[in-house]
Structure formats: structure tokens, C-alpha cells
Amino acid sequence: MSYRVGERVRVADRAHEGHHRTPGYLKGKIGTVERVHGSFANPETRAYGADGRPEHALYLVGFAQRDVWRDYRGREDDRICADVYEHWLEEAG
């Protein structure tokens, strides 16, 4: 697990042909690691009959809604959180 709770991370802004679990609306967005869930099989290969190995660390990452939706109606500290696999995360400093 390379990232720790509280660390700022960016979701990789890249296209992916085929099944993947990184929602498009979060690609390129910067958030904060909120939980480290452990390691899980990679759905990108598992979806096509492979065993999903090597496993990847999975993180709950929280994003400020205002950073994700330009016209967000709500509080400043409202958050959208999603589970993102390590190979979709980059250090954000």
C-alpha cells in the first residue's frame, strides 16, 4: 500500500479500453485518501477470464464536490467518495 490515510492523490486522467472501475467524472481530480481497504483482484483482467493477479491496493478517496462539479449546489465541505485502485492513483503533493 503506497498511499496513507490523509495523503493527497490524483486520479489518473487516462482512457482505458475495456472494463474498468474508475468513474470518468473523477479522472484527473485530486482527492484525499480516507481509507485503505486492502488488496483486491484487478477487475480489468478478471472481467476477461483471468485471475486478476497481481492484486492491487484499493483506497476510499474523498473529493470536494466543488472540485468535481463546477455548479455543485451544497456545502463547501460536501464530499464525493469512491473506491479507486492504486494503479489509477498518482501522487498529488
Partner: peptide, 15 residues
């Protein structure tokens, strides 16, 4: 209430 923070959880993976 105005002082309640809303947290949306998008269950995108194994949880």
C-alpha cells in the same frame, strides 16, 4: 440541516 456535511459514497469496486 445547514450544518450537516453530506458524504456520497460511490461503490465503484469491491466494497
Amino acid at each position: 440541516d445547514d450544518d450537516v456535511e453530506l458524504r456520497v459514497l460511490d461503490s465503484t469496486a469491491d466494497i
